[in-house]
Computed example of a mutant assay.
Amino acid sequence: MSGPTDEIGARTDTGRAEGFSDGVLAIVITLLVLELRVPEGEPGELLSGLVKQWPSYAAYVASYLYVAVIWLNHKATFSRVREADRGLHWANLLVLFSTALLPFPTSVLSRTLQEHDLPDQRVATVLYALVGVVVCISWLMLYHYLATHRELLVEGVAPGFFPSERLRALIGLVLYALGGLLGFLVNPLAGLAIFILLPPFYGLTSGGLYSTRLVPHRRAADD
């Protein structure tokens, strides 16, 4: 028989989850900047050395923007959440787990682009794309959980909001996969271009596709 204390801790406010998430994302951004290093070379070659490191700058910008946009989307998501249960905590931890992987493929991609080894560049592009796909899958799971657990949401959240957010995650999943495919079969720079363009899309829609009216609003009865 269930005791009266069985549900203690099953649901809590979102304060600790949001604070922990902010800390993790801050560490991830810090790790990204550590890949920007002073180039080695003879005296008088500093300028050329800095120019040769342009792939590091491009990879850093792409990943920094990505983490920044993840923070914006995380903030927008939890502003609509009233309380969290164990399932939501696990979904949130999965988002943080996938995001924390970003410094690794960023480092691999920037170094291989500087070494001008095409086969390695192709592999590095696919690696970055795979991590991007994993991040999108984690957001898809988070949005799906919130779409099916409306009792966790604050009052006034439209019934179609989180169902439509799943579409945003799917768009990213498809485009990261496409970037990896183009980077491997065509040119690594084609994949890098997609990686750089995706964060602005997620930044512009951080309030949600439903809020920006990029998806049709349905009646609550249809949701």
Rank of each mutant, 00 (worst) to 15 (best):
E115M: 08
L101A: 14
S110W: 00
V51D: 07
R86H: 14
L93Q: 14
P39V: 04
T99P: 00
Y128R: 04
P105L: 11
E35M: 09
V33I: 14
F104M: 14
P119Y: 05
V134I: 12
V108F: 04
E40H: 09
G87C: 10
V131Y: 01
Q53V: 09
Q53S: 15
L46Y: 02
L46M: 11
L109M: 15
Y66G: 11
A58K: 01
A62R: 12
D117A: 06
S79D: 14
Y57R: 01
P119C: 05
L32G: 00
P43H: 07
K52L: 11
D85Q: 07
V67E: 02
L102A: 02
A68N: 06
F104P: 00
V133G: 04
V51R: 05
A58V: 15
L113R: 00
C136A: 15
L88S: 01
S110N: 01
W54V: 07
S110G: 01
I29M: 15
G49D: 04
V123M: 14
T77K: 05
A129D: 06
V81S: 02
V126K: 00
E115K: 09
A26E: 10
E35R: 11
P39K: 01
Y128P: 03
H116F: 14
A59R: 06
D85Y: 04
S107A: 13
Y66C: 11
I29F: 03
L94I: 08
V95A: 02
P43W: 06
S107F: 10
P39M: 04
I137L: 14
V134M: 12
D117P: 01
T125M: 10
L32M: 04
A58R: 00
H74R: 06
Y128L: 07
L94S: 12
V51Q: 13
L96V: 06
I137F: 11
V61Y: 01
P55T: 13
E35K: 07
R37Q: 09
P119D: 06
P43R: 09
L34D: 00
N73F: 09
L31Y: 07
G44F: 14
V38K: 07
N73D: 10
L65C: 07
T77N: 05
V67I: 15
Q114N: 13
V67F: 03
W54I: 06
Y60W: 13
S63G: 02
L72T: 06
P103F: 03
Q114M: 14
P55Q: 13
H89L: 14
A59Q: 05
T106N: 01
E45I: 06
D117M: 03
R86G: 15
G41H: 08
G44S: 12
V131A: 02
R37L: 05
G87V: 12
L65M: 15
V28L: 05
C136P: 02
T125D: 07
T30W: 08
I27E: 08
P105M: 10
A124N: 03
Q53C: 09
K75M: 09
T125A: 12
L94K: 13
K52W: 13
T125Q: 04
V33F: 07
A100S: 15
W71Q: 05
L127I: 09
Y57T: 00
L46F: 06
L65T: 08
